[in-house]
């Protein structure tokens, strides 16, 4: 039973991974790509790790998979944040159809 639930989790994770990478190809500018790929790939991989935990049970592999999922949930947004800031400071402007850029109006904090 837990085998089947784990496989369902892994399948959901694979679908999210796929959409994240599709967004990486299709979306028009750095910040939009960062949004799509960070959200989808992080939660997709966490779902795969949780499915691994359900399949193998509480063993060395399962506990390490849970630790790895927690670590990814904590660190992937931090690196996305740092990359967005770095990209904006290195001079990459927003997509030309963007609505508003308050960050540039306020002069890019130190």
């Amino acid at each position: 039973m837990s085998n089947i639930i784990g496989i369902i989790f892994i399948a959901i994770g694979l679908v999210f991974d796929f959409f994240g990478c599709l967004g990486l190809v299709r979306l028009p500018d750095v910040y939009n790509r960062l949004q799509a790929s960070t959200k989808c790939v992080t939660l997709g991989t966490c779902s795969i790790l949780f499915g691994t935990f359900l399949i193998v049970g509480v063993s060395a592999t399962g506990v390490k998979a849970l630790i790895c999922a927690t670590f990814l949930l904590l660190t992937a947004p931090v690196s996305a944040h740092a990359l967005a800031r770095g990209a904006h400071k290195s001079g990459v402007r927003l997509w030309e159809k963007s609505v508003v850029d308050k960050y540039q109006e306020d002069g890019e904090l130190k």
Binding site: G13, R33, L34, T38, G44, T45, I48, A76, S79
Partner: peptide
């Protein structure tokens, strides 16, 4: 960004 995403995908692959 893509290097970062590749790293996360490799974690899922190993799992």
């Amino acid at each position: 960004i893509t290097i970062d995403i590749l790293g996360i995908l490799v974690v899922g692959f190993c799992a």
